[in-house]
């Protein structure tokens, strides 16, 4: 049961960590602090959806909203220039944000516990939209449409966490830990039970499991992961406004997750990378306003031709290269790796 060193070497999360650590060595500050950090944050938020789908076969439009609950909690408990909320020491603010986001996730799971498929999507979308209208129309607590501005990550041991490299390091650590947690869950009794729940819920209940509790727990874990992304996203953009929890944000997360491949944790990060790159380059190729057209077209191509998203494409490529490579090795007398 303990992973062999060789297996550990093949562990996808290790590759995410290594690639993440190597990236600042080859890329400039803009790429590290602005592009890559954003990929990791969006990836972490999308991972919460990937987890729900890959483990329990659940879908949710509410993950951006859940991340937003964490973001707003953090904003209201941190020093800000909008003058709302009440500043508390930052570890407390971050802790409260994660707790509130997790509770929001549990609430989404509890309210939607009897729905599945398209109805589950609709009910989670409805909750997400409700949150959007709450924060955009309430000026006393949430400062309405303008949101809460002037937010900063704290200084840690005299190091400014908003500087490109430290912030990137923080986002990388959060992404790697979240992905590792999702991969770990898949290898635990709980992960197996979620999988069983997706396959045959009647059977799972007949064996003695509360299907209600299992589902709510899955949404709670997804809520925690989304909250981690939500906290980082708030620090990244320096503000929290209704734009972070609107329908567009909800759709974007779904697009990222499907684009990357919703059946593997790393798909979320591949999808986020594609999304952020397209967002940055669509502006220079065609008009900035046409970004949605580009991402939409890419999305359609992926959905039509690569069922498991970008990660599925990579797996297919590997499967095709491997026999070829083994063939080459056999001819040259070398040992295949």
């Amino acid at each position: 049961m303990t992973p062999m060193p060789q297996q550990l070497l093949r562990h996808p999360v290790l590759w995410l960590a290594l690639a993440g650590l190597a990236f600042p060595l080859i890329a400039g500050e803009f790429w590290v602090g602005t592009v890559a950090a954003r990929v990791l944050i969006i990836g972490t938020m999308a991972l919460s959806l990937t987890f729900l789908t890959s483990s329990a076969g659940l879908v949710s439009f509410a993950q951006a909203g859940v991340a937003g609950v964490a973001g707003y909690t953090l904003a209201l408990l941190s020093p800000n220039i909008t003058g709302v909320g009440m500043a508390v020491p930052w570890p407390l603010a971050v802790g409260a944000a994660l707790v509130m986001g997790t509770l929001a996730g549990l609430l989404v799971g509890w309210v939607s516990v009897r729905s599945s498929g398209i109805y589950l999507l609709m009910i989670t979308l409805a909750m997400s939209v409700s949150l959007f209208y709450l924060v955009s129309q309430n000026t006393e607590i949430f400062n309405g449409f303008d949101g809460i501005n002037g937010l900063k990550p704290p200084e840690l041991f005299g190091m400014d966490l908003r500087a490109p490299i430290p912030f990137y390091g923080m986002a990388l650590a959060a992404a790697v830990l979240s992905a590792a947690a999702v991969m770990h869950l898949d290898r635990t009794p709980f992960g197996l039970q979620l999988h069983a729940l997706r396959n045959a819920p009647r059977r799972v209940a007949a064996l003695g499991f509360s299907t209600t509790l299992l589902r709510i727990a899955a949404f709670g874990i997804a809520g925690l992961i989304a909250s981690v992304g939500g906290v980082l996203n708030t620090w990244f953009s320096g503000q929290m406004s209704p734009g972070a929890v609107d329908v567009h944000a909800a759709v974007n997360l779904l697009v990222v997750a499907v684009l990357g491949g919703i059946r593997h944790p790393l798909g979320a990060f591949l999808g986020a990378a594609a999304f952020v790159l397209l967002e940055n380059y669509a502006a220079s190729v065609i008009d900035r306003e046409r970004f949605n057209l580009v991402i939409g077209a890419v999305f359609i191509v992926i959905v039509l031709f690569a069922k498991d998203g970008l990660i599925g494409l990579i797996q297919q490529l590997r499967a095709q290269i491997k026999p070829a490579w083994t063939g080459v090795c056999a001819k040259s007398g070398r040992k295949a790796v």
Partner: peptide, 19 residues
């Protein structure tokens, strides 16, 4: 069968590895 065994005797939310 592992899921079946755990239904009654637990753990119903086991978060540790199988070992």
């Amino acid at each position: 069968l592992r899921v079946a065994v755990m239904g009654r005797r637990g753990p119903r939310f086991g978060l540790r590895p199988w070992g």
